Simulated scan of single mutants.
Amino acid sequence: MSAEELLIIDPLELRFPFELRKPISCSFELLNKTDSHAAFKVKTTNPRKYTVRPNSGVVPPRSRCNVTVTMQPQSEAPLDMQCKDKFLIQCVSTHPGVTPKDISQETFNKEVGKNVQECKLKVVYVSPPRPPSPVPEEPEEVHSPRASRTEMVNQDENSAPRDQIVKLMEVRDAIIQQNGKLRRELEYLRRGGSQKRAGVPLLYVLLIGLIGILMGYLFRKS
Protein backbone atom coordinates (compact mmCIF):
# COMPACT_ATOMS: atom_id res chain seq x y z
CA MET A 1 0.00 0.00 0.00
CA SER A 2 1.29 3.42 -0.93
CA ALA A 3 1.59 6.30 1.49
CA GLU A 4 -1.06 8.29 -0.49
CA GLU A 5 -3.87 5.86 0.28
CA LEU A 6 -6.58 7.42 2.41
CA LEU A 7 -8.26 4.23 3.62
CA ILE A 8 -6.85 0.82 4.40
CA ILE A 9 -9.40 -1.89 3.61
CA ASP A 10 -9.31 -5.17 5.52
CA PRO A 11 -9.92 -7.83 4.31
CA LEU A 12 -9.65 -7.54 0.54
CA GLU A 13 -12.27 -10.21 -0.14
CA LEU A 14 -15.77 -10.89 1.15
CA ARG A 15 -16.10 -14.45 2.44
CA PHE A 16 -19.67 -15.69 2.77
CA PRO A 17 -20.37 -19.03 4.54
CA PHE A 18 -22.86 -20.07 1.87
CA GLU A 19 -26.17 -21.66 2.88
CA LEU A 20 -29.32 -22.00 0.84
CA ARG A 21 -32.41 -19.95 1.71
CA LYS A 22 -30.67 -17.96 4.43
CA PRO A 23 -29.42 -14.36 4.54
CA ILE A 24 -25.65 -14.35 5.04
CA SER A 25 -23.50 -11.46 6.25
CA CYS A 26 -19.84 -10.60 6.37
CA SER A 27 -17.98 -7.35 6.98
CA PHE A 28 -14.86 -5.40 6.22
CA GLU A 29 -13.15 -2.43 7.88
CA LEU A 30 -12.12 0.97 6.57
CA LEU A 31 -9.14 2.39 8.48
CA ASN A 32 -8.09 6.03 8.08
CA LYS A 33 -4.51 6.59 9.25
CA THR A 34 -4.20 10.06 7.74
CA ASP A 35 -4.95 13.49 9.15
CA SER A 36 -7.67 14.14 6.54
CA HIS A 37 -11.36 13.30 6.43
CA ALA A 38 -12.08 10.51 3.95
CA ALA A 39 -15.42 10.15 2.18
CA PHE A 40 -16.25 6.68 0.81
CA LYS A 41 -18.88 4.91 -1.24
CA VAL A 42 -19.45 1.15 -1.80
CA LYS A 43 -20.71 -0.17 -5.15
CA THR A 44 -21.43 -3.69 -6.39
CA THR A 45 -22.00 -5.35 -9.74
CA ASN A 46 -25.16 -7.04 -8.36
CA PRO A 47 -27.04 -4.48 -6.21
CA ARG A 48 -30.25 -6.56 -6.00
CA LYS A 49 -28.40 -9.42 -4.40
CA TYR A 50 -26.63 -7.50 -1.62
CA THR A 51 -27.42 -4.93 1.06
CA VAL A 52 -24.56 -2.71 2.27
CA ARG A 53 -24.69 -0.84 5.59
CA PRO A 54 -23.43 1.87 5.43
CA ASN A 55 -22.96 2.13 1.68
CA SER A 56 -21.38 5.61 2.02
CA GLY A 57 -20.01 7.84 4.75
CA VAL A 58 -17.10 9.80 6.15
CA VAL A 59 -14.21 8.34 8.13
CA PRO A 60 -12.61 10.97 10.42
CA PRO A 61 -8.82 11.19 10.75
CA ARG A 62 -7.14 8.38 12.75
CA SER A 63 -10.37 6.38 13.03
CA ARG A 64 -12.14 3.44 11.43
CA CYS A 65 -15.52 2.37 10.09
CA ASN A 66 -17.05 -1.11 9.86
CA VAL A 67 -19.15 -1.99 6.79
CA THR A 68 -21.53 -5.00 6.78
CA VAL A 69 -22.58 -6.70 3.54
CA THR A 70 -25.62 -9.00 3.61
CA MET A 71 -26.39 -11.42 0.79
CA GLN A 72 -30.07 -12.15 0.24
CA PRO A 73 -31.28 -15.78 0.59
CA GLN A 74 -30.34 -17.88 -2.43
CA SER A 75 -32.48 -20.72 -3.79
CA GLU A 76 -29.62 -22.59 -5.47
CA ALA A 77 -25.85 -22.83 -5.15
CA PRO A 78 -23.63 -21.53 -7.97
CA LEU A 79 -21.66 -23.97 -10.07
CA ASP A 80 -18.48 -25.10 -8.26
CA MET A 81 -19.28 -22.54 -5.54
CA GLN A 82 -17.74 -19.80 -7.67
CA CYS A 83 -19.04 -16.21 -7.61
CA LYS A 84 -18.31 -13.47 -10.17
CA ASP A 85 -19.77 -10.62 -8.13
CA LYS A 86 -17.45 -7.69 -7.36
CA PHE A 87 -17.44 -4.75 -4.98
CA LEU A 88 -15.83 -1.37 -5.56
CA ILE A 89 -14.86 1.00 -2.74
CA GLN A 90 -14.21 4.60 -3.75
CA CYS A 91 -12.69 7.15 -1.39
CA VAL A 92 -11.63 10.77 -1.62
CA SER A 93 -10.28 13.35 0.77
CA THR A 94 -12.85 15.88 1.94
CA HIS A 95 -13.04 18.85 4.29
CA PRO A 96 -14.27 18.74 7.91
CA GLY A 97 -17.98 19.21 8.42
CA VAL A 98 -19.06 17.00 5.51
CA THR A 99 -21.81 14.54 6.51
CA PRO A 100 -22.97 11.31 4.81
CA LYS A 101 -25.97 13.22 3.42
CA ASP A 102 -23.56 15.51 1.54
CA ILE A 103 -21.97 12.60 -0.30
CA SER A 104 -23.22 11.90 -3.85
CA GLN A 105 -21.90 10.31 -7.00
CA GLU A 106 -20.41 13.66 -8.04
CA THR A 107 -18.21 13.50 -4.93
CA PHE A 108 -16.17 10.77 -6.61
CA ASN A 109 -15.99 12.19 -10.11
CA LYS A 110 -12.46 12.07 -11.41
CA GLU A 111 -11.48 15.65 -12.07
CA VAL A 112 -8.20 17.39 -12.54
CA GLY A 113 -6.41 17.77 -9.23
CA LYS A 114 -8.78 15.38 -7.48
CA ASN A 115 -7.38 12.10 -6.20
CA VAL A 116 -10.06 9.41 -6.16
CA GLN A 117 -8.84 6.07 -4.89
CA GLU A 118 -10.56 2.82 -5.79
CA CYS A 119 -10.24 -0.69 -4.44
CA LYS A 120 -12.01 -3.84 -5.70
CA LEU A 121 -13.15 -6.66 -3.47
CA LYS A 122 -14.06 -10.11 -4.75
CA VAL A 123 -16.71 -12.42 -3.31
CA VAL A 124 -15.78 -15.90 -2.07
CA TYR A 125 -18.23 -18.61 -1.01
CA VAL A 126 -17.04 -20.97 1.71
CA SER A 127 -18.72 -24.04 3.13
CA PRO A 128 -20.27 -23.46 6.56
CA PRO A 129 -18.53 -25.18 9.48
CA ARG A 130 -19.91 -28.58 10.30
CA PRO A 131 -21.53 -29.02 13.72
CA PRO A 132 -19.53 -31.16 16.13
CA SER A 133 -20.45 -34.81 15.99
CA PRO A 134 -22.21 -36.11 19.10
CA VAL A 135 -20.17 -38.15 21.54
CA PRO A 136 -20.92 -41.82 20.86
CA GLU A 137 -22.49 -43.62 23.75
CA GLU A 138 -20.64 -46.55 25.15
CA PRO A 139 -22.35 -49.80 24.13
CA GLU A 140 -23.98 -51.72 26.89
CA GLU A 141 -22.35 -54.97 27.79
CA VAL A 142 -24.26 -57.92 26.43
CA HIS A 143 -23.93 -61.16 28.33
CA SER A 144 -24.42 -64.28 26.30
CA PRO A 145 -26.65 -67.08 27.65
CA ARG A 146 -23.62 -69.33 27.82
CA ALA A 147 -21.79 -66.83 29.99
CA SER A 148 -24.84 -66.51 32.23
CA ARG A 149 -25.10 -70.27 32.70
CA THR A 150 -21.38 -70.40 33.50
CA GLU A 151 -21.82 -67.69 36.12
CA MET A 152 -24.74 -69.59 37.65
CA VAL A 153 -22.70 -72.78 37.81
CA ASN A 154 -19.84 -70.91 39.44
CA GLN A 155 -22.23 -69.41 41.97
CA ASP A 156 -23.65 -72.85 42.76
CA GLU A 157 -20.16 -74.28 43.16
CA ASN A 158 -19.16 -71.43 45.45
CA SER A 159 -22.34 -71.68 47.52
CA ALA A 160 -22.10 -75.49 48.03
CA PRO A 161 -19.12 -75.38 50.47
CA ARG A 162 -20.82 -72.59 52.42
CA ASP A 163 -23.99 -74.66 52.79
CA GLN A 164 -21.98 -77.64 54.01
CA ILE A 165 -20.14 -75.50 56.54
CA VAL A 166 -23.45 -74.09 57.85
CA LYS A 167 -24.86 -77.62 58.26
CA LEU A 168 -21.70 -78.85 60.00
CA MET A 169 -21.83 -75.89 62.37
CA GLU A 170 -25.47 -76.71 63.20
CA VAL A 171 -24.53 -80.38 63.90
CA ARG A 172 -21.56 -79.22 65.97
CA ASP A 173 -23.77 -76.93 68.08
CA ALA A 174 -26.27 -79.76 68.63
CA ILE A 175 -23.47 -82.13 69.67
CA ILE A 176 -22.04 -79.54 72.05
CA GLN A 177 -25.46 -79.06 73.59
CA GLN A 178 -25.98 -82.82 73.93
CA ASN A 179 -22.49 -83.25 75.33
CA GLY A 180 -23.24 -80.72 78.02
CA LYS A 181 -26.41 -82.56 78.92
CA LEU A 182 -24.56 -85.89 79.15
CA ARG A 183 -21.87 -84.36 81.32
CA ARG A 184 -24.50 -83.12 83.75
CA GLU A 185 -26.11 -86.57 83.83
CA LEU A 186 -22.74 -88.20 84.43
CA GLU A 187 -21.96 -85.80 87.24
CA TYR A 188 -25.29 -86.60 88.80
CA LEU A 189 -24.57 -90.35 88.67
CA ARG A 190 -21.13 -89.88 90.18
CA ARG A 191 -22.70 -88.13 93.16
CA GLY A 192 -24.84 -91.20 93.92
CA GLY A 193 -27.88 -90.77 91.81
CA SER A 194 -30.58 -93.30 91.20
CA GLN A 195 -29.60 -97.00 91.52
CA LYS A 196 -31.50 -97.70 88.33
CA ARG A 197 -28.86 -95.82 86.40
CA ALA A 198 -25.90 -97.53 88.09
CA GLY A 199 -25.00 -99.45 85.00
CA VAL A 200 -25.24 -96.44 82.68
CA PRO A 201 -21.98 -94.49 83.40
CA LEU A 202 -19.92 -96.69 81.10
CA LEU A 203 -22.38 -96.10 78.24
CA TYR A 204 -22.22 -92.33 78.75
CA VAL A 205 -18.46 -92.44 78.80
CA LEU A 206 -18.46 -94.23 75.46
CA LEU A 207 -20.94 -91.74 74.00
CA ILE A 208 -18.86 -88.78 75.17
CA GLY A 209 -15.77 -90.31 73.58
CA LEU A 210 -17.55 -90.83 70.27
CA ILE A 211 -18.90 -87.27 70.35
CA GLY A 212 -15.42 -85.89 70.99
CA ILE A 213 -14.05 -87.81 67.99
CA LEU A 214 -16.90 -86.55 65.77
CA MET A 215 -16.40 -82.96 66.92
CA GLY A 216 -12.70 -83.11 66.14
CA TYR A 217 -13.51 -84.39 62.66
CA LEU A 218 -16.07 -81.65 62.07
CA PHE A 219 -13.67 -78.93 63.23
CA ARG A 220 -11.03 -80.17 60.80
CA LYS A 221 -13.61 -80.09 57.95
CA SER A 222 -14.69 -76.54 58.75
Rank of each mutant, 00 (worst) to 15 (best):
V58W: 07
E140W: 00
R15Q: 13
I8H: 11
R64G: 14
Q178P: 00
R162S: 07
E19I: 08
I8D: 09
E111M: 11
F40E: 13
P131Y: 03
E19V: 14
I165S: 11
P161M: 10
A77G: 04
Q155M: 12
T68M: 11
K84N: 12
N115T: 10
I89L: 15
L30N: 02
S75K: 09
P201S: 14
R48D: 11
E140A: 06
R21T: 02
E13K: 12
G57F: 05
R220G: 00
V153S: 04
S25P: 02
P128E: 00
K101F: 07
E111T: 08
D163A: 15
F16N: 03
N55W: 12
T34W: 03
E185W: 10
G57W: 02
F16W: 05
F18Y: 09
L30C: 04
R21A: 10
L12P: 01
C65V: 10
L168E: 08
G192N: 11
P134I: 03
L207T: 12
E106L: 13
Q82A: 15
M152Y: 03
R190A: 15
C119K: 10
L203A: 13
S56Y: 05
V42M: 05
A77M: 15
H143Y: 05
F18W: 04
A38L: 06
C83H: 09
K84Q: 15
N179Y: 06
Y50E: 10
K167E: 15
L202F: 08
S63G: 10
K114P: 04
K43Y: 14
G216P: 01
F28N: 04
V67W: 02
A174Y: 04
